[in-house]
Design a protein around this nucleic acid. Structure first.
Lengths: 169, 169
DNA sequence: CCTATTAGGTCCATATTTTGGACTTAGACT
DNA sequence: AGTCTAAGTCCAAAATATGGACCTAATAGG
């Protein structure tokens, strides 16, 4: 495990990486917590504020950034017999964060849990529990050992010739 | 879409939520970027520093926190004919962030991409492209419309009676 | 032996963000 | 006219981040 060659740079520079770009956008504590609440259906400024105890000025700035990024929408609405209010629903783009968030939840359930996980996903029709997994194009699940990274059509890390060598360039 | 009842609180309080706990641990820009590089195999202090251009003091603090959390390990090693060095490999706990990270990458590829995604996963044996998906216990993929949230054995959000009502309490 | 270099950090003064609280604005109700 | 609520804004104080210089141990070269 120690005798592999050292990898000194990622094959995808942070500035060209969509993962890094995502983190740029939503990778900050309050933003992530706001999105967590939003996934559960929370939509209003004061509700986010009360639930998370986030400073109002921070919440204001984060919501504006999320709207700007297209992850949430700022929308006026009126309940019957009520005055107009503002709500911040997730857009399609935002709702699709559900999958990474659920994968993250499963990780937390496994490694950080205190007690039973409170939350899960289920098939409406079959009633079976659901989980996040890697599947191939046909929907067939694959084993972790069978998974290979590919960067610009090359396998990563580069496969080594049988005998070790000192330096490659 | 606007006439659903307002959800004013998440069903899982942030402090009892393993997703929120995960964010507590790794939900910060530098930490996420460090982990991104680590997934690709970067292990050494100066390599993280050079790749990310992160201030050395911040890197030092973040690595210490990750080691403390059990996500990375701080380890001395010695390459043949070289002096001892320090490396920070991912632990099993850390490596299992791969799935949420890959789900996040796919989200970024879809919504933030400039050009073709540089990175993907593939089956070593079949050569087929892989993706993250929700599957049931038997490994059968499910459709998004078939997915239901469950919180402490209750469906979320609570299913409504057929006719709309003003207030529930 | 003396000096330079590298890896893996620490330390510190300055710059930026966050925080918590007070304040504002507008509509609806009493 | 006064009160309440939702959705913010504004500000001073506190906490963090930043960039750079500095430190230490081990090895390499002369």
């Amino acid at each position: 495990m120690t005798d592999r060659p050292a990898i000194r740079r990622s094959p995808v520079k942070p500035c060209d990486c969509n993962l890094a770009r995502s983190f740029e956008l939503i990778g900050d504590r309050w933003t992530l917590l706001i999105l967590r609440s939003a996934m559960y259906g929370v939509r209003r400024f004061d509700d986010f504020q009360a639930e998370l105890d986030v400073p109002r000025s921070v919440l204001s700035a984060r919501l504006a950034a999320l709207v700007d990024a297209g992850i949430m929408e700022r929308r006026e609405y009126r309940e019957e017999g009520q005055r107009a209010r503002i709500e911040y629903p997730l857009t399609k783009m935002g709702a699709e964060l559900g999958l990474p968030f659920f994968a993250m939840t499963a990780w937390g359930d496994k490694w950080l849990a205190e007690g039973e996980p409170a939350f899960g996903l289920r098939s409406r029709t079959s009633g079976r529990k659901l989980k996040v997994a890697l599947v191939d194009e046909r929907g067939k699940p694959v084993k972790p050992q069978d998974v290979q990274y590919v960067v610009r059509d090359e396998v990563w890390p580069p496969e080594e010739p049988a005998q070790p060598r000192r330096r490659s360039g």
